[in-house]
Design a protein around this nucleic acid. Sequence first.
DNA 1: GACCTCCATGCACACGTTTGCATCCTGCAA
DNA 2: TTGCAGGATGCAAACGTGTGCATGGAGGTC
Lengths: 342, 342
Amino acid sequence: MPGKPTIKDIARLVGVSHSTVSRALNGSPLISSVTRERIQAIADRMDFEFNEGARRLKNRKTGIIGVLYYSVLNDFRSSLYTNELFRDLRHSLERVGLDALVVEAYNDQSGQSNIARLIRQNKVDGFVIIHPEIRREDYELIKVHKLPIVHIHMISDGISRDSVDCFFTDNYEGGHLAARHLIDSGCRKIQVVRIDENEAEEFRQRTLGCLSALEEAGFIVDVEGFFSCDCSYKGGYRLVKENHIHLREYDGIFIPADIAAFGFLNALKEEGIRVPEDLKVIGFDDSPVGRMTLPSLTTIHQPREELADKASKRIRSLLFDDTSDEPIQEYVKPALVIRESS
Amino acid sequence: MPGKPTIKDIARLVGVSHSTVSRALNGSPLISSVTRERIQAIADRMDFEFNEGARRLKNRKTGIIGVLYYSVLNDFRSSLYTNELFRDLRHSLERVGLDALVVEAYNDQSGQSNIARLIRQNKVDGFVIIHPEIRREDYELIKVHKLPIVHIHMISDGISRDSVDCFFTDNYEGGHLAARHLIDSGCRKIQVVRIDENEAEEFRQRTLGCLSALEEAGFIVDVEGFFSCDCSYKGGYRLVKENHIHLREYDGIFIPADIAAFGFLNALKEEGIRVPEDLKVIGFDDSPVGRMTLPSLTTIHQPREELADKASKRIRSLLFDDTSDEPIQEYVKPALVIRESS
DNA sequence: GACCTCCATGCACACGTTTGCATCCTGCAA
DNA sequence: TTGCAGGATGCAAACGTGTGCATGGAGGTC
């Protein structure tokens, strides 16, 4: 009565041994369906939950997932969105009984990767990789130790997508949505900004999706004339400062990263270009700060919660179920969020 | 050899029983100091760490601390700073082997507080309270179940500070610093904004500290003439829109909450009031977005890491050490951060 | 020397779970 | 009838730690 119910309590009530309860609740095929259902019913009624401590002890697991994630906020580069993504990931992991541990994939002072240390000390059961700056040797090390890996958001060059578990935003579709929205809002001269972040595939997909929508609508696209900037607040800011005369020729612009769009908006204000009257602006990511800018930012929502959810469930499954090890790849659909800037 | 070392491994090496190792490493007074040191030396050499799973199992603890925290970002009210604080708290808790669980202190649909549920289901070992919207009955419930509580950042009305464990920023000192800085920067007509957030004590202290510095410097302070706004982006924004003529009389202003200062800065830009040339602005909190505004915001840094650290260590100690239960109150010093707005 | 005290240490069990192995039962073939 | 197969379930040990109780030894007193 005092404290949480255990499998033994359930066993007593059902009239079976606690082994049977354990197997039933873990989906073992050894248990007959009628017994399983009786057990499940009682467990539900009592709000039964496994004692994670005991489970981890017995399974020799820590319940901790290392998350490789570029968390440095100092320069406000691309970290705005990944911060949010990490938050959602953390919540999803919690929901499946796991904890997240931030991993800085860099050498510490000793010159040794702390990924090696984490593995050596059995600190983590597996990894979720958000940002791609992981060194080849660390990656191999994880593989050698047979720890599961799930990728979200980006993927390192040189790793074949088909051979790993990964969940991504459909960036192409997102770019397409963005262009469609500008067209539907009446824009006739649309500009696309190219993000020069190591030629990252995700940004390229956004631009390509955008172009396809423009072409479908019969727009003539001057690919050579594209602006470009890096994925940062200052990148967007400078873009305006260096091109503001040229910018007045356009009535709509797609900036495939919110963080750059923020700098862009602020610079426009300083130049006296009105948004959305003179120029409609749409970003990409749906960073929460987008609600706070003036005007607030129309953008493409990345399905963070969904990505986080899928990744969490997948890694849980890789850890506990001995299913076939066929890797899974999945693209998740983004969504348009209309605010004041368009 | 394979896997992490356990207390039994250490026991074998030292030539004692694992009980002795357990006691030694937990600081039990039963162990002689010479034995303790031998054990400690070996433990250090092997990078020994306790198996948290086993520990939690044995101690009937979950290792999870419920954090009451107003996490809703929708309206961007005061949540900007508390979000950062929570992040730091999470990291500190991790460092002492604990996990944080966000607790929304509101009734869920059933009308029942989920604090009651968490306690009933033994989901948490204790609470850290960041924001003060906790209902009397929930508070009593925690007390009745003898779960430890540590307060940071704010405290509910009707709870006596002396009777609880709490760690706060020295808000008075912070306000003092802010005013000193404006004076030292050459301001001669300084305005102070009062934040009307339920007359919260923390804001009042900031204002008071500011006033004392002004008076010390021989300024004549027109308390009646103070502006006031609520603790939100829009609050600061409106403040300008409704008082911009009046504002031109001043050359320095202290806005005791960054979030309001952000709205304030944006509105100033629209009104053509230059910062810092016409008006120097200083905020309070050191929210990270302050680096991103134009101009970036001079502010008072709240010692979040330190508050988080102290709170984490304290709750750990309340959980595991059976020290005397004298509650601890501590005020931590803030620091001035100079950026472009002053 | 016998007795007692006090301090340091060991023994053994418990925490809740998983799992290899043993056991039991039912049904079917010989 | 016996034997056997196979499915369902129970038994018991193990994971690493904490702790009440027993034990052993050193030192002191009479």
